[in-house]
Design a protein around this nucleic acid. Structure first.
Lengths: 191, 191
DNA sequence: GCGCTTTATTACCATAGGTTAATTTTTTTG
DNA sequence: CAAAAAAATTAACCTATGGTAATAAAGCGC
């Protein structure tokens, strides 16, 4: 929770009441590797702020294959925002891929926080703007880069993710099969 | 401008002063087919709200090929948000693909509008949330659908875009070549 | 309506990446 | 440490899509 509070204070003037309120609507949770926090088809009640470890969100296609939308590490938010913002059931699954620590917020409390304490508006606007930028960049990369180039970029963006994520999750983020990724890794090693 | 004002009033309480201010920082522009409003490498001064016609944003890769990030039709915003939110020079180009009408806002005025008139915060939060959702959906579609499936979905999402966009722009949005799209269209016709 | 320009199609070959299945390597667990 | 489970690699073959180039069709200006 300290991490989030200090992050907030770097960006906005956080009133003591707002800080108090934040505490009242959140709870620290330790989740173990493999634990599922949000499951496809169910109501999305929570949004998570990661303070330690790594989680990912993914969808499952009609052939049962998983496609990773996001990896969330320290200081990132993760949930099924498609479901929350559209007021629908989850189309994504969120699971912890390491033992992790998260702060859990009721999605509904977060939705109301902005009218209660307007100082959060500017903070959230910044978050959403950065989120839009990163998603747009990912789309452009997908359109113009080869799988090998996307892999290199991924390794730059998530420098030590390899140590705690199996390669087939990385492949599912890049939009290729684990076999293709293995081939790419081999070519890289030989180069 | 009427369209934007009524859109705003549907979502928030718009004070007369705020409405007046909006007028003071915007200007109507008619742009003709092919006109470029934002050019790669230059400073991004404006954000556009489309009231008629269609514009698109795209990047140009190292081989000179264009990749379409967004089509903007009536009631959509378009600019180079990557540049604006990161305070960088344009990496995108925005061009009008039909004769169009837009409302032009100085990006800097829009950035300051939220502290001046906080009623815009909630409106913008809704815009950004929907934007995030649509970008996330596009990424998931890119990961799990075939080019033919993406094309079908595109036609649903932009029902009459074919009448004013050449197919090679659609192909560049879908992440395939115009030749591949032509093949896909042929197979569709024969099915 | 004619000619020019832009757009779309087609064809042929090349290639990145997918599929399936077997094998090896690594990690986990008792 | 041995066995089991999970992850990664490899291989052989297949398919979707790309690259290039030629042709056809459509749209536009005069």
């Amino acid at each position: 929770m300290k991490e989030l509070i200090s992050k907030l204070k770097n960006n906005i003037d956080l009133s003591p009441e707002a800080e108090e309120y934040l505490h009242s609507i959140s709870s620290n949770r330790e989740v173990s590797k493999g634990e599922v926090l949000i499951r496809e088809g169910q109501t999305v009640r929570y949004t998570y702020f990661v303070t330690d470890g790594c989680l990912r969100s993914f969808c499952i296609d009609k052939n049962g294959r998983q496609h990773t939308l996001q990896f969330a590490i320290k200081e990132w938010w993760i949930s099924d925002f498609i479901a929350i913002y559209n007021n629908e059931l989850a189309t994504l699954t969120v699971e912890s891929i390491t033992d992790s620590k998260v702060i859990e917020f009721k999605a509904m409390d977060l939705a109301n926080i902005f009218t209660k304490y307007s100082e959060f508006e500017a903070f959230q606007r910044g978050n959403l703007e950065r989120h839009v930028v990163s998603l747009q960049k990912r789309i452009l990369n997908q359109l113009q880069l080869t799988a090998a180039e996307r892999y290199d970029l991924f390794l730059q963006q998530y420098p030590d993710i390899e140590s705690y994520t199996p390669n087939y999750h990385i492949a599912s983020y890049l939009g290729i099969t684990q076999q293709s990724l293995s081939r790419i890794r081999k070519e890289k090693a030989n180069a």
